[in-house]
Design a protein around this nucleic acid. Structure first.
Length: 933
DNA sequence: ATGTTAGGCAGAAACT
DNA sequence: AGTTTCTGCCTAA
């Protein structure tokens, strides 16, 4: 039906039943209002009942009268049906009544196993059996399959999909709404609205036509398609195909049968005195290739290798990028290489089989070709169709595509009747080889630069500004690649004007699209934090903004400036409360309750702090309370590795030590909230304890809040650099190392001396670039500890950590701006962190060597210089290994990353994770960067 | 009950 | 205490 039809007034009807609350009465004037409504509608749209039992009876009678084919509701399978049946059971509704919910008369209530705690896993078999004869359409489950949303609540979907507002009523407020007739009618309206919304959502998503098409294609049960059951669809499709060709199909092995056959084998083996497990394994793999041994653990790792993902050439690209991908790669491979149960010869030792040589087309390829062909036909009809027909045909072609694409997945599904690991393996292997050979072809023969590729796609950097030329290149590539294959086809999937490539499966781009010949642009984001459901809205908004700036094509200065100012703005807004933190806050128990508090549930709850990741892992939602809060002892140094923060404490324990315990906001923020936000929070802590306490629901007078400021870290104690005698590092303080044993700090000896002592080679060698000696650091002793103290040795890991910290600080300082005297003779270098000394002026100040020098300090280094220095700095200290660690752990954009990436990116992307520490207390002066791209 | 593998990343547990 | 490994989540394809 077209939407206009079912939306017509009177096309659909509804009814509502309300009951009194236990021990209550209906509000005044309600009965009158109800009868008025009913007479106005000409039918009973609103009925009153006096008890729950009567209400359920009434509902069942109405359902029976309607005898609907389909029950529709949002999360109806996970909630509504369950509740209805349980309440029917509890209120002793007779079976003749409750069984009217389905079309099968039943006398005994089936087991309504609450087994699955997982939200949204569908109705249990018992519930499904109750509604036998009717289909169940759960719009919650459907929208999870068909849409990509942050939340699949009815409220959210109504807003984004139907553009309608839905009011959420807390269950807590419902009793109060029974007090007045007006409020109760309002409540009724909300209930009805939910039903309408769910129905509208179903129509909006074309759930019924789509599932019907899918069912028609595969020949399974519609009801199953509505419940998901992708594996079953493919199973039936194959069953029909093979049966038609007079094949005998493999037996269906259910989980229980699998279990019993295993135990039987074990028993037999036991009798024979054989090793049960061994025999079992052999047995299974020999007698049926389709059976396999995944009974290891609940969560199994991958059984075979899948698609190839190319190492991305990270960076910001500002000329056209071509995105080419193979149209439905895996189905095409099956056809191209004639991969089928009937053609591939499987080796008994579980090796990946070789490609079939058979000339006769297998069942599987033929089936797929059929689907593809049908889809092509449907699409061709689509061009000339109009009105409702367009919708129908479009749904049909979608269904055909979905079916073809889900075939491969089921080959690799271990519980599938047609499980065929060798086939799945062979397919992915071909996929990998095809991608690799395509890359080779494009790179070596066509001399183009491939910057990334994933499973079935490649991205080519054209280096061109001209879209027509770029398209021409794409045409050439397509021509060259496609002539190698019969069924496989590579196609231009998109043109990116600019692209930011960060990691595997993480990138964003400005995609150029055409509407009626005129180009327009959209930003495509893949895998980045802001597309993930588990990041705070606030982080996403900030990240999105940064991204739009980076991809705006503006000059570096402008981009940096605008990102910086917007960050400052956010900071300011958080400080003055313009951003409602509460909106972004969810609370969650962070640590598993300790064993020694078994009675945790009955303890007074304390609301736990800010956490900006949404949809927390443990199913907590905003406002939840938990019995533990994170805290540490006053004066104890906290931090990610102090160990304290990972421990939860009971409120009682807190009370006892109330004077000494406190919430460590600093740690808390830095760990539990998005780095940017956390740091912004940290930086506003001077004003925020009260506010934070408010957010936390704590009495601020009872707790002390430790802030980073109050810890009294003086950033100026950090050093700039190490390398003595190096011109570039003049004016820098020496590297400090601290002893793990006595924790005294001492200066790092001159690097030159380190190199000479550690070097066994001659002096000629040491002049050239040489491998740093990692072992050296293990031999280094603390000057204040006796030589035989083990702890006084500095381990590489320790060193790496120290280097990291100092490098971090180095960068922090740098961002404030390195300054150098412009007098050629003086060249005094400093960090403008000491702006307290020099004044916070953009312009250079008089050289501190005055009056010996007449120069002015000017900003000197570019960021590239910084990194050259930094990598040099790290290189001297070792340690490629350290660097790796650093790169991985601290995610500093060292060396290659940095060289490739726009500075604004290292500052802003991944929502600025990379620079969180530098961002920390407003040290970052992005506008000071003088980098060109 | 249930389509696949590859990959990044935060947080917690385990290890030394 | 400091570090590494494991786990869960959610994405890309």
């Amino acid at each position: 039906m077209l939407a206009s039809e079912w939306k017509r007034r009177g096309a659909l009807s509804h009814f509502t039943v309300v009951r009194k609350l236990d021990g209550g009465i209906f509000p005044m004037g309600l009965t009158k209002e109800v009868s008025e409504r009913n007479s106005k509608a000409g039918a009973t749209v609103l009925a009153l009942e006096s008890s729950e039992r009567a209400l359920l009876n009434r509902l069942m009678i109405e359902l029976n009268k309607l005898d609907g084919d389909i029950l529709v509701g949002h999360n109806i399978s996970g909630f509504d049906l369950d509740v209805l049946l349980h309440r029917a059971q509890a209120s002793k509704v007779p079976s003749s009544m409750w069984s009217k919910i389905g079309r099968l008369k039943r006398s005994v209530m089936p087991k309504l196993t609450k087994g699955n705690v997982l939200y949204g896993s569908g109705a249990s078999p018992g519930i499904m059996s109750c509604i036998a004869g009717r289909l169940l359409c759960d719009t919650y489950l459907c929208s999870r399959d068909l849409l990509k949303e942050v939340s699949y609540s009815l409220t959210q979907l109504a807003k984004t999909q139907l553009k309608k507002d839905r009011k959420e009523i807390s269950p807590h407020d419902i009793p109060a709404m029974f007090q007045t007739s007006g409020a109760l009618l309002e409540l009724v309206e909300y209930g009805e609205t939910d039903a309408w919304l769910s129905l509208e959502l179903m129509f909006h998503l074309s759930v019924l036509p789509l599932t019907r098409q899918l069912t028609n294609i595969s020949g399974n049960l519609w009801g199953k398609t509505l419940q998901g059951a992708r594996a079953q669809r493919v199973e039936y499709l194959l069953l029909h195909s093979f049966h038609a060709k007079k094949y005998i199909v493999p037996d269906k092995i259910s989980a229980r049968n699998k279990e019993s056959s295993t135990t039987k084998r074990k028993l037999n083996a036991g009798i024979d005195g054989e090793d049960a497990d061994d025999l079992n394994v052999n047995d299974v793999s020999l007698d049926n290739g389709a059976l396999h041994i995944d009974q290891g653990k609940g969560k199994k790792g991958p059984a075979y290798s899948g698609g190839l993902v190319l190492e991305p050439k990270k960076g910001l690209y500002d000329k056209y990028i071509l995105l080419l991908d193979f149209n439905s790669l895996y189905p095409s491979i099956i056809q191209e290489y004639n991969i089928c149960f009937t053609t591939v010869e499987r080796s008994p030792d579980g090796q990946i089989p070789s490609l079939p040589s058979s000339k006769t087309t297998g069942v599987l390829p033929e089936l797929l070709r059929n689907l593809v062909e049908r889809r092509r036909m449907v699409k061709s009809w689509l061009k000339t169709a109009s009105g409702l027909k367009v919708q129908q045909l479009d749904i049909q072609q979608q269904a055909l595509k979905l079916t073809a694409n889900s075939m491969y997945g089921c080959l690799g599904f271990s519980n599938s009747r047609f499980y065929a690991k060798p086939l799945a393996e062979l397919i992915t292997l071909q996929g990998r080889e095809i991608l690799q050979s395509t890359v080779d072809l494009v790179q070596n023969n066509l001399n183009l630069e491939v910057i990334y590729g994933d499973t079935d796609s490649i991205m080519i950097y054209s280096g061109l500004d001209d879209i027509a030329k770029a398209k021409a290149i794409a045409g050439k590539v397509m021509q060259e690649v496609n002539k190698k294959y019969r069924y496989l086809e590579i196609d231009l999937d998109g043109l990116y004007k600019r692209m930011l490539l960060l990691k595997k499966k993480k990138y964003a781009a400005v995609k150029v699209l055409f509407k009626d010949g005129t180009p327009y642009e959209v930003i495509e984001r893949k895998g980045l934090d802001m597309v993930r459901r588990d990041w705070s809205l606030l982080s996403k908004e900030i990240g999105d903004f940064c991204l739009s700036q980076i991809l705006s094509g503006g000059t570096c200065e402008d981009v940096v400036e605008s990102i910086h100012s917007s960050l400052m703005e956010v900071q300011e807004e958080m400080r003055n409360g313009a951003i409602e933190l509460e909106k972004y806050v969810i609370t969650k128990s962070l640590t598993k309750p300790p064993e020694d508090y078994p009675d945790a549930k009955n303890q007074p709850h304390v609301q736990v702090a800010l956490r900006l990741k949404q949809n927390g892992y443990s199913g907590c939602s905003a406002g939840d309370t938990v019995p533990y809060i994170i805290c540490c002892q006053q004066g104890t140094s906290s931090g990610p590795s102090s160990g304290i923060a990972q421990r939860a404490r009971h409120p009682e324990e807190l009370k006892r030590d109330s004077g000494e315990w406190m919430i460590d906001i600093d740690y808390y923020l830095s760990q539990q909230i998005h780095p940017v936000v956390s740091r912004l929070c940290a930086s506003i802590q001077g004003t925020s304890p009260a506010r934070l306490a408010e957010c936390l629901g704590l009495d601020s007078s009872k707790f002390q809040f430790k802030t980073a400021d109050s810890v009294g870290q003086d950033p100026s104690t950090v050093l700039l650099s190490v390398i003595d005698d190096d011109e570039r590092y003049r004016g820098c303080e020496p590297l400090q190392l601290s002893c793990p044993s006595c924790s005294s700090t001492f200066e790092c000896p001159p690097v030159s001396s380190l190199l000479s002592t550690s070097s066994s080679g001659n002096s000629l060698d040491s002049q050239t670039e040489k491998e740093p000696d990692c072992n050296f650091w293990r031999r280094m002793h603390c000057p204040r500890c006796p030589d035989d103290v083990d702890g006084s040795r500095i381990s590489p890991a320790m060193l790496a950590n120290q280097v990291k910290r100092q490098a971090d600080n180095f960068i922090s300082l740098y961002y404030k701006g390195l300054m150098m005297c412009d007098d050629e003779m003086c060249k005094y270098t400093t960090c403008s962190l000491n702006l307290r000394v020099f004044g916070d002026s953009e312009r250079g100040t008089v050289c501190p060597n005055y009056p010996r020098c007449n120069g002015h300090l000017i900003r000197q280094y570019t960021e590239a210089d910084l990194y050259r220095q930094l990598s040099y700095f790290c290189h001297m200290l070792d340690a490629t290994r350290c660097l790796e660690k650093l790169d991985q752990k601290a995610r500093l954009p060292f060396e290659k990353d940095f060289a490739a990436i726009h500075p604004a990116i290292s500052l802003a992307t991944s929502v600025i994770r990379n620079i969180r520490d530098r961002c920390a207390f407003g040290w970052v002066q992005l506008k000071d960067l003088t980098v060109s791209v």
